[in-house]
Nucleic acid binder design. Structure first.
Lengths: 122, 122
DNA sequence: CCCATAGATGCATAATTTTGCAGATATGCA
DNA sequence: TGCATATCTGCAAAATTATGCATCTATGGG
């Protein structure tokens, strides 16, 4: 089984992991630093069970790692560059029915990188 | 519906499109230039119907575009950088049960970028 | 006009994922 | 010890995707 095929499988696995809006938001959230499950649940406005399930997936593929302290589980990206690499894909998203492309990308990038004051900025 | 959510959806759509080994190989193949459906089918050793189906998907999301000449349909990436952006993800793939990480990544990158002599290199 | 070649499409079936919910665990505190 | 908090896991139902196959379209040649 040729190596290119193998590699493409690995990459596809990674992409599949990222092919979910919640998980992407999770990763971008973690791009700003360590966070607990409940902080993430609050930030994304999702049930913490769901967050937990997503994190389990990401953890299984070593995209995030856990650090426990008391009853809180702090999560962080194992490769912090992952968050920025993802944003680098913005030029490739299909922007039909969207405003000015370049400006749009800038706006979005700013949106993500901005430390959300509390998380009412969404 | 907050914009971050929207963007993460767009990005997730993109990732979902890339979350398939065949499509990734297709994109890397096209990263080397325009190719027809049958060339791609031969290179990936897959039925051309399947190639066609994948291309239809990629086309629908404007990742590739078509140019027809006679009965051949030539495909190319609308954003050639896409191919290299994908390879930039190699450091993030889960390499448990693999050899030396850094060297491995280099080897793989070389493998992809090498113009396959005929396509028996696979 | 007829045939062969190159691709595209439609569909039903099979394979994967996602989601919600109902328990498990584990930790800190009274 | 008993209880509440924080999180994890297992599972079945619902939603998405992928695949194979049959069919259809377009182009070029004779």
């Amino acid at each position: 089984m040729p190596s290119r095929v193998i590699v493409s499988r690995d990459l596809a696995d990674l992409m599949r992991l990222l092919a979910h809006a919640d998980r992407l938001r999770l990763i971008e959230e973690l791009g700003q630093g360590e966070k607990t499950v409940s902080e993430l649940a609050a930030a994304l406005a999702l049930p913490s069970t769901r967050i937990s399930q997503h994190l389990a997936l990401l953890r299984a593929h070593r995209l995030v790692a856990e650090r426990r302290n008391g009853r809180s589980h702090f999560y962080h990206l194992t490769h912090p560059q992952l968050a920025t690499w993802i944003l680098d894909a913005l030029p490739f998203v299909d922007i039909r029915n969207r405003l000015g492309e370049a400006e749009h990308i800038e706006r979005v990038r700013a949106l993500w990188s901005a430390q959300p004051p509390h998380h009412n900025v969404e």
